[in-house]
Amino acid sequence: MTTTTWTCSELLRGESSKSYALIVVNQPIRSDLLEKAWKSAKIKLCADGGANRLYDIDSEKKYLPDIVKGDFDSIRDDIRDYYTSRDVRVIQDKDEYSTDLMKCIAEVPEDYALVLLGGLSGRVDQTVHTMSLLHKLHREIYVLDGESFAWLLREGRHDIQIDHDTMGQTCGILPVGIDSARVKTKGLKWDTENPLVTIETDRPVMWTCEIRSPL
């Protein structure tokens, strides 16, 4: 059985050993989480109204994305003009068959891991869309959303490195989008007390863990 090792806790420390692309979606932003994820990412994008969220929380105006993209039914005109004036690629895409998030993902090279800042809170349709993409896209995708860090574990064995400086004590294994799964775990004792968690599953399941506050 092939084992996948997950070392992505570096995202919560502002470090990177691989190529990450950060996509800011139109949901509330936790400032310390933004700072760490921004440092880890090589490419930064805002999905339409995500540009509003980034601009409003960026009091020092130190965060400039590489790309702002969407159908632009949410971005404010002044913010669109601001990022344009700062030489950010501002791309309007009116395609009605793709969401703003999908439009941004299309801009990211296939060999980059995707990091979504937001996507599991707020509107129910947006949350379901995020979870659907985790299943449909055979790419490495992580979701950082307020209190939770989540990604999909596909069939097989997974070794997850736990960083107790950034991750809290609670975690979850969720059979989202499937009727059932046979799951075997090692390293869990109600909460995550160990530095390594091993999970074997015969169906895709979502793994979530708590993000400490503050980071």
Rank of each mutant, 00 (worst) to 15 (best):
L137M: 13
E107F: 10
Y63G: 05
Y63C: 04
P65F: 10
I91C: 08
L54P: 04
K136G: 00
E96R: 14
H129A: 12
L133A: 01
R139S: 02
H129F: 05
L101A: 08
H129T: 07
I105D: 04
A106D: 14
D73P: 01
Y97W: 12
V108Q: 06
M102D: 14
L64E: 07
H129Q: 11
H129G: 02
E110Q: 13
K103V: 11
S74Y: 03
T99V: 08
D77R: 11
R123Y: 03
I141P: 02
H138G: 06
V115S: 06
S121M: 01
I57K: 03
Y63P: 05
E140R: 03
D78Y: 15
V68E: 10
S98E: 09
I75S: 03
E60Y: 10
P65D: 11
S74T: 14
D100S: 11
L133V: 01
L134V: 08
L116D: 05
D125L: 01
N52E: 10
K62V: 15
K136W: 02
S85V: 12
V108W: 08
Y112Q: 05
Y82N: 12
D78N: 15
I141M: 13
G118Q: 03
I57T: 14
R86G: 04
G119S: 05
Y97T: 14
T130N: 02
R123S: 05
L137N: 00
D81H: 13
L133F: 00
M102W: 00
K61M: 14
E107S: 12
G122K: 04
T127P: 00
R76K: 15
V68W: 08
I79A: 06
V68Y: 07
Y112H: 15
M102R: 13
R76P: 01
K62Y: 07
H135R: 13
H135N: 09
D93Y: 12
V115A: 06
H135M: 09
L120S: 00
L120N: 02
L101C: 09
K94N: 15
E107W: 09
V128G: 00
S132F: 01
L137A: 00
D100K: 10
S59W: 07
D100A: 09
C104V: 11
T127N: 03
S98P: 06
G122Y: 04
V90P: 12
K61T: 06
D77M: 06
L116K: 03
K94H: 12
D66F: 03
Q126V: 00
V128Y: 06
P109W: 06
K61P: 01
M131W: 01
G70H: 12
S121T: 09
S85K: 15
R86A: 14
F72Y: 10
L64T: 10
T99N: 08
E96W: 06
I75E: 03
V128P: 00
D77T: 13
Y97C: 11
I57R: 03
D71M: 11
S121Q: 01
D125V: 01
S59K: 15
G118E: 03
L101G: 08
L133I: 08
G119E: 02
D77V: 11
K136R: 13
E107V: 10
L116H: 04
T99I: 10
T130C: 06
F72L: 10
I79Y: 12
G70I: 13
V88K: 12
D71N: 11
R53M: 13
D111T: 10
H138M: 02
S121W: 00
D95M: 09
D56K: 09
R53D: 07
H135W: 01
E110M: 09
